[in-house]
Simulated assay, not measured.
Amino acid sequence: MSKTFTPADVATHNTADSGLYIIIDTNVYDVTSFVDEHPGGAKILKRVAGKDASKQFWKYHNESVLKKYGSRLQVGTVKDAAKL
């Protein structure tokens, strides 16, 4: 069962102690356990932790990466804050 997060919820998960969460499109991923496996290095994931990393992700990856790792790392979806 997946959880629904606000962008503010995800923003609190920006350290190894609180968990490293990122947003890609409308999905939230916990990349804490993936940091050491990331081919680009841990520094990149730590830099985008707690943020929407969609732009950076799609610049360097394609759909096959999400198919390979997405189900293992996804912890929920993000709901947008109310738009005024």
Rank of each mutant, 00 (worst) to 15 (best):
Y69H: 13
D52F: 07
Y60K: 12
V10T: 12
A42K: 15
Q74P: 05
A16M: 13
V78N: 00
D52M: 09
F34Y: 13
F5W: 09
L20D: 11
T12S: 12
D52I: 07
Y21I: 03
S64R: 12
V65I: 12
K51P: 03
E37F: 12
L45Y: 13
T32Y: 07
A49M: 14
A82K: 10
K51R: 14
R72K: 14
V75G: 01
V75F: 01
K79G: 00
G41K: 07
T26S: 09
D52G: 08
A16Q: 14
A42N: 10
G76Q: 09
S54C: 10
R72A: 11
T32I: 05
L84I: 07
H61R: 05
T6F: 06
G70P: 09
K43W: 01
S2P: 14
S33L: 04
M1G: 14
G50E: 05
H61W: 09
K68R: 08
M1R: 03
N62M: 02
H13S: 05
Q56M: 15
T6P: 05
R72F: 06
H61Y: 08
Y29V: 08
R72Q: 14
G70I: 03
K55W: 02
G70A: 04
D80Q: 09
L66D: 02
N14D: 11
P7E: 04
R72W: 07
S71K: 12
Q74G: 03
S64A: 15
N14Y: 03
T6N: 04
L45F: 14
Y60F: 14
Y21V: 03
L84E: 05
V31P: 11
Y69I: 13
I24K: 10
D36C: 00
T77N: 01
Y69G: 02
V35K: 08
S18T: 15
S64L: 09
Y69W: 14
L20C: 15
A11Q: 12
D36Y: 03
M1N: 09
M1A: 10
Q74H: 03
T26A: 05
S2Q: 13
K51W: 01
K67Q: 11
I22W: 07
K68Q: 07
I44E: 09
T12M: 10
S18G: 02
T32M: 06
T4D: 06
T32A: 04
